[in-house]
């Protein structure tokens, strides 16, 4: 990978109403377990299907740290490596389980230049076939 060519968005390339480049994540048992263990979350519902089903879940499901990790990736894949994440606030909905596709979408809701950088506020959503997995807001700064 030629990383020198990776582009970062600057403030003048972003407008209110712009869509964040969509991202689809295939939810697999491997992805669920890899995310849980990488975040050091050993709660059994994130790796043990029998346990998850005994708790009323259809299968193992993404832990919340995985949800936030993918939201962060979704935002910086779009804004680029110069972006600095400031916050991610989500309301949590239906679980994301293996066999589903978790679709990320977002829109710029505000833009404010200050001290040589620009604060970008966004509305974000991650949804599976069965409903919204996470909905909320996020903010990041990019160079002015």
């Amino acid at each position: 990978m030629s990383q020198k060519e990776i582009k970062s968005l600057r403030a003048d390339a972003i407008s209110v109403g712009d869509n964040v480049t969509a991202m689809d994540v295939e939810v697999t048992a491997t992805a669920v377990v890899a995310g849980a263990i990488a975040s050091h979350d050993y709660m059994p519902m994130h790796h043990d299907r029998d346990f998850a089903q005994a708790q009323g879940a259809p299968d193992i499901f993404f832990n919340i740290m995985s949800t936030n990790a993918y939201i962060a990736r979704f935002l910086t894949d779009w804004a680029g490596p110069e972006a600095v994440l400031k916050n991610i606030s989500v309301r949590l909905g239906v679980q994301a389980v293996p066999g589903q596709v978790l679709k990320f979408s977002g829109e710029v809701t505000n833009k404010e230049e200050k001290d040589g950088e620009c604060l970008i506020e966004l509305a974000i959503k991650a949804a599976v076939e069965t409903g919204d997995h996470a909905t909320g807001t996020a903010a990041l700064t990019v160079p002015a």
């Binding site: 995310g35 975040s39 995985s66």
Partner: peptide
């Protein structure tokens, strides 16, 4: 080591 485990788990290729 923990950062790499994380970036692999979530396929996050941000070079930063």
């Amino acid at each position: 080591a923990m950062i790499r485990q994380w970036t692999d788990a979530f396929s996050d290729r941000n070079p930063i």
